[in-house]
Design a binder for these strands. Structure first.
Lengths: 170, 170
DNA sequence: GCTAGAAAGATCCATTTGGATCAATCTTTC
DNA sequence: GAAAGATTGATCCAAATGGATCTTTCTAGC
């Protein structure tokens, strides 16, 4: 049985909906992450962070973790890397001394434009098997899933599950 | 502007197709990975690997990297972890001494059944915003994308791009 | 049947990761 | 207005990651 047939078998199984999305996103991430890291010498979350800051000048680090679901320290590190490179600057909020408002520098905006253009090309490439109408259908459905209440809070896989270790001693 | 509105703005941008999928997969992965690691004390790729082995008895490590696009050493480590736990066994191929054929033990099959049942529940939960018909439409389109020729080989983001460092010295 | 090259899988090691903790600041309650 | 608790973002550190390399085995060409 060839690898292609094995993939088809998986995509016929009871977990097919989850598997097919995992597969294409894992595959796409491998391509995207390698490219961004090699070409720009920073992790992909630095690009996500820069994107957030250019789109929403004055955004706070905490909010970025909600736009791109990554751990807080990951975003924190991306911010300090971008600041070191002179791509963003931060200024402490006047109303709350804990908050740091983030802004892109001209160099940051310029770099974002470049990466963004390449990403649009990548998007076209990735979705090229679909017609325009199909892309919109896919997008509409994906957006419904993204808005679902159980995306980040699961009953099936609760975040406070007892660990294997604890279960053994119980 | 609230975080919810920011998300909607992103989902209205030129990168919306990529962003919406990234968003829901990153979110789902956070939930799934944390659960599997906490509950079973192994990384999520160990479950992917066990799944592959139960589905396809005698599969080789190399093939698993094509079913779940992860680096080769990641799968190699998952295999040795599963073997240590007594969940799988390997036997060197009679026709090729380099190949190790992988098989699940009864304990491995039992564990897979358990995780698989939970994963099906998680799948239902994640896709609950869609009707059954919408789920099938989404699946059909996602499968087309997964089968696309540019998934793992990109023109927009080629794997042999010159690094930032090299470009500076050129 | 010998040698050069390719392929499978294990291992090495510098770097990254993310849960946990910490310091600073703000809010609430009495 | 003092103390307890919550929130933001930085930092710590043990563990995981993944590119590169190594070993073993197979294959091709002569």
């Amino acid at each position: 049985m060839s690898t292609k047939n094995k993939l088809n078998t998986i995509f016929d199984s009871d977990l097919r909906h989850l598997m097919v999305v995992s597969y294409f996103v894992l595959g796409n991430n491998a391509v995207t992450n390698r490219y961004i890291e090699r070409r720009y010498q920073f992790p992909v979350q630095a690009w996500s962070t820069l994107f957030s800051i250019v789109m929403f000048p004055g955004i706070r680090a905490k909010e970025i973790t909600h736009l791109f679901p990554r751990p807080q320290n990951t975003i924190s590190r991306a911010i300090s890397l971008l600041a070191t490179r002179g791509l963003i600057r931060h200024q402490t909020s006047t109303t709350d001394g804990r908050e740091k408002r983030l802004f892109a520098t001209p160099a940051g905006e310029e770099l974002l434009d470049e990466i963004r253009a390449i990403s649009v090309q990548r998007q076209d490439e990735l979705f090229s098997p679909l017609t325009d109408a199909e892309r919109e259908t896919f997008f509409t459905l994906a957006r419904k899933i993204a808005n679902g209440p159980k995306l980040l809070e699961s009953d099936a896989m609760p975040s406070d599950v007892a660990t294997g270790k604890e279960r053994n001693t119980a």
